[in-house]
Structures are given as C-alpha cells and as structure tokens.
Design a protein around this nucleic acid. Structure first.
Lengths: 339, 339
DNA sequence: AGATTGAGTTGAATCGTCTCAACCAACCCT
DNA sequence: AGGGTTGGTTGAGACGATTCAACTCAATCT
C-alpha cells in the first residue's frame, strides 16, 4: 500500500507540513505560488488525505449512522434516501445499518458506530424501552429517534400511527364492512401496537356493530402476510372477515397474493388496506389502498434535528415532530360491502 | 462530551495504559485480578474504545464500502444483505452507498471511502470504463466489481446477462411470439446492453421469423416502465408487440400496471418477462415471469474475494466469477401465443 | 534609521490507541 | 548462591493530520 502522507507532500513541495495542511483547509491564506507547488506535489504523489487521522485530531466526524428495522422494506429505504439528500448538502456521509428487528444486531451496530465516534445516530429502535440508547446519548453521541415515540430525552420524528389505524378502520366501516381483521406483527413493535389501537378505536366508535379480529405474526414480511392470508382464505365464507387491514404493505402484498391463489376476489370478497404506501403498492395485483406516510420527509427531518443538535449543543432543546398520515384509496378497497 | 480515554481507565485501575490496551486486545495474557480491576474501571467510567485512534495506529479498518447503482431496487438490497451476512462473521462493517446512477455521486462516495481508509470497496460502477477506479486500486484500496465485467485489474463477480436475455428470448419465441419488445434503459449501462444483446441473439437464431422492437429509457424505474407501457398500449393492436422483455423487474412492474390500466390482458394480449426476480415480482398484479439472479450469492462472493485479497495481498490473483441466471416462469408469460 | 505592521511560513505539541523492548519479581534448578 | 525461566507489567515511541504561538522578511510609517 503506497499511501502518501502529508510529510512526503511537504518534502516534495519544499514547504512545511503546516503549510500543506493550510493548503488543504484554508487555501486562501497561503501564497498562490506556494499553493500551486503543493497542489502539484499532491497530484504527483497521488496523495489522499487520511480522514481517520484528521478526525482523531479534530474530534468530530462527518458521518452519521442510520439504523433501520428492515432494509428490505422499501419504506426504510425511502427514509434513508430522505436523510441522505440532506446529509449530502452538508457533506456528511450516512452509513446505513440494518438491525433486521434483532436487538442483538442493533446493539452491535450501535457499539460499532459509537466506537467510530460518529457525529450522531438516527435510529428506528427495535424495542420501545432502551436504556442502552439513553446511556449512549448520555455518553455524548446525539441520537434522534425515527418513526418512534418521544422519550423526552432525545429528539424524535414520527407519524401518528394511531391516527393511521383509525383512518383505515373508519374507511372500511364506512364502506360497510362489519367483520374486519387486523393482520399484524409482534405487538412489541410500537408501530404495530399503535396501528392496532387505532383501528380498535374506530371499531369501538361503531358501538358494537363491527367485529375486529386480530392476527399476530413474528415478522412483517411478504411471506408472513401470505401465510396469514392462506389461513384466512381457508375459513368458511361465513367466518371469514370481509376486510383486512395489514400492518404494512409487504404483509398486505403477501395477503393479497394468497387471496388470488385461492380464487377470492379483491375487493369483492375481501377488501385490503396496507400501510406505508410504498411504490410497489400501486403496482400490486390489485392496486393497494394504503395509509401513506411522508417517508422522505421523515428522514430529512430526522437529520435536520440531528444537525441542529450538533451545531448548537448548548441551546438545543429536544423536540418531537409528529406528522399526519393519510389514506390513499385504490382498487383493493374501492368497492363497498353493501353498495 | 464526556468521552473517557484509555489513560483515565489506567489511572482508575492503577495500572499502565499498556495493560489496559492488553485487557482490550489480548485479555488472556493479563492476570485475572488485574483484568477484573480494569474491567471495573471501564464500566464505572463508561469507557468506549476510540476506534478512530485504534485504526490510525493499526492502519487497517474493519469497514468495507459497498457502492450500488440504486438502493431503491430491491435487487441491490439483496446483494447488500448477502455481503453483510459474510461481513458479520468477520466482524466487519459494510457501509452502503448509493450512486443512484450518477457518476458524480459515485465519485464523491469513492473519495469519501478512500479518505476513510476503508479496508476495501465493492462497487457496481455506473460506467463501464473507469480510470478513476483503477487509480484507486493502484493507490492501495482493494476493489471488487459487483455485477460488472472483468477488467483483469480487479476481481469481479457477475451474472451472465447475455445468457439471461437469450433465455428470456428463447422462451418467448418458443411460446409463439413473433413481435417482441425489449423495454430497456440507457444502453450505456452494461447490464442493459448485455440483456439486449442476449435477446437479440435469440431473435437472430429464429432466422428472421421474429421481429424485435427496442425502447430505451433514461432510468430503470417503475414509473419509466409504466410510461413505456402507456405508449405501447396506445398502439393499434396490429402494430403492438405481443410480448415484452423488460430490463429489470421494476420496469416490468410498471409496464404491467400500464397494461392493466388500459384493459389489456396479461399474458393473453401481452406477455411480460422481467429481470432479477425480486420478491415483489411474484406478488405482482399478474405474477411475473423473471430471469433470476443469485442476488445474495453475488454479494457473498464479492466480499469473499475482497477478504481473500486483504488477507493475502501477495499471493492473491484477481479472479472473475460468473454465475448463470435462470428463468422463473409465472403467469405473465405462462400462456402461448398460439396454443 | 528605527519602529510597526502584516502576510506567509514554520515546527512542536496534540489527539487516543497500539506495540514492543525492557524490566521486575518470583520461582526453579543445579 | 547464581543463572535461567516464566508470567506480568511498564512506558516511550509511533500513526497522520491539525493548530497555534513564534518567527521571518518586506514594505510602510514616523
């Protein structure tokens, strides 16, 4: 490895290391002729500044970590892209880490990021209560919770999932459905619990006229949605719900697939609503109704908060930003139960 | 920021910094009692080792960069997951960067990664010829090309895209299609060019009996696929192709959507084959036939090659690994044109 | 002439960790 | 008793860039 350092550059350009450093960081204060000589030396040697050493000295990195629950869910990819677009403008790098819903993996990623002394961390935590995260913040790494509730100890951005559930439920009830299923994931995941509570509230508002079934799965994947769908499709028509509200679009897509493979029509035999409104929702077998979240905005806002905290640690006050979801109605729930 | 360093730990534990370092790196050589004292001090102070300083001294990072063409394409996410699973076993971190098909962004990411002195870089380059990449490698950062052709100067892993195109073409021809459209992207992208050449070869083998139309788009997105689909659907039935082979699944999904919204039946009026076989392909409006690539394997192999090069830079010989794609037939191409 | 100013440049100290030769104490062997 | 061995521990350099007080040398002012 032929990595050149600042000293070699200095030698070749016949200046001191201090001057080379100045050329790199404050070119305007060094005499044009000298500056030129240094640039030439840099070019001739193929010198690339060692960001590691720089960072050690300066004490502040230009990298932020983004730890998401599931990279294979396009929702999180969009959040990441939002964050990255802002980071780009502050020549900051976003490193994307995947906890895959596993607290162990999440913990390892956080360890790594803290050891790297990143500028800050954006995270969609696996678990609601996380003393580990608080210690991390206390030790001096700013943390912003993404799509997660406020703890008061950190900044956070989130979307009102309870409201999202409520909207979806109200929509289905209004369409005449009286037997609705919530196709959920582990209730330990806050998003799932809130969306469930939301539709529960909508059902309660119907004063007993509507029945709410609930299924819980270990993961929120397409495969899991399909599995639940298979079971539901196998039920006799009388016991089967007439509508399903899925905890996210991936599950909804799987669920939809199962309906199709059992010859059940959507929305006539089964209405379906998903959550997140990922790009694939509109491209599904039957275009999927879905509760839309402002995905990129979520990411952009999160990193804005982080950058603000880093820039002014003293006067920074932790804030909670909450966005509103809205329902996108497509064919999968277009038709009423009783027209 | 109350970041503790090794010296403070040493003081509290009443040992030298060397001993603390030993506890951290080779615990077995320090006396159990001392070790205990050091661990206690670490815990009490909330000490977290500064990986930046460590790296500066040791000169070798445990991070590899993975620069992909498009994070919003699940294909690349799967490649990344493959790479990460191997990296995990070597406690190495993968940082995922998105060039989004833009040479400028790609270049900036590469600069950043080199400055960070990453252990190596896995990349799906935007452009086929890239002197920049070669200089990078020459300066000492190992590079493995992913899903990209061999240059001889680096290791590479790829899938035979030409063969993939050929298989898809042969399948459609065998099903009786005589007017086929290649729904492609910019021909400057190697994958696109190869897949096009592949289906071209299949058509040529039919000795003039089959006509091949070609559309090119600036990007390979769902939206672009839909746009092309709209145009195609608007054609009079006589001029319209009876089958489409799309450069990737995202385009195929968009194309499929356009067919549906114009009341054209798939596969009766239009057969469709996609490429990559992402998970969403099977969940599409009409389950999508697709040329499958070993996505995770691609990522795993790439990082294996990189780790090998890093472990034994001397005896390492650059290698090109090529995998074979295969066709997954689903409903979107299930029916023959002339049964 | 001597003092003052300002633009450029220098080099030593610093960041936090690792490495390695040197050292120490205790034990064993003859 | 003296020499060798073993198991632990120490502390002084690196690593590569940044910073800043000190310095040089002309040009300008009094």
């Amino acid at each position: 490895m032929a990595t050149r350092n600042i000293k070699e550059v200095a030698q070749l350009a016949r200046v001191s290391v201090g001057t080379v450093s100045n050329v790199l960081n404050r070119p305007e204060i060094v005499a044009p002729a000298t500056r030129e000589r240094v640039f030439e030396a840099i070019k001739k040697l193929g010198f690339v500044r060692n960001e590691v050493a720089r960072h050690l000295r300066v004490g502040r990195s230009r990298t932020v970590g983004l730890v998401v629950l599931d990279v294979s869910n396009p929702f999180f990819v969009d959040v990441a892209q939002g964050a990255e677009s802002v980071a780009d403008d502050h020549d900051t790098m976003v490193v994307l880490c995947n906890s895959a819903g596993d607290p162990g993996r999440e913990r390892r990623h956080l360890d790594q990021l803290e050891q790297q002394r990143v500028m800050g961390i954006l995270i969609t935590p696996v678990e609601m209560e996380s003393p580990w995260l608080e210690e991390l913040a206390a030790r001096g790494t700013p943390v912003v919770l993404v799509d997660s509730p406020a703890t008061g100890l950190q900044c956070s951005v989130a979307v009102d999932d309870r409201l999202g559930g409520q909207i979806a439920g109200a929509h289905l009830i209004e369409r005449g459905h009286r037997r609705i299923m919530f196709v959920g994931g582990p209730p330990s995941i806050r998003q799932v619990a809130d969306r469930h509570a939301g539709i529960g509230a909508a059902v309660a508002a119907a004063a007993g006229a509507v029945e709410l079934l609930t299924s819980t799965s270990p993961t929120l994947t397409v495969a899991e949605g399909r599995a639940v769908g298979e079971r539901v499709a196998a039920l006799p028509a009388g016991e089967r719900p007439t509508a399903a509200f899925c905890a996210n679009d991936m599950m909804a897509l799987g669920f939809l697939q199962a309906m199709a493979s059992h010859g059940l029509r959507v929305p006539e035999d089964m209405a379906i609503i998903g959550y997140d409104d990922i790009d694939f929702a509109a491209a599904a077998a039957v275009p999927l109704s879905s509760v839309r979240q402002p995905r990129e905005l979520l990411g952009r806002t999160a990193i804005d908060l982080l950058l603000e905290e880093v820039a002014e640690p003293e006067e920074h006050r932790h804030r909670q930003v909450i966005f509103q979801p809205d329902l996108v109605v497509r064919k999968s729930s277009a038709q009423g139960r009783n027209p």
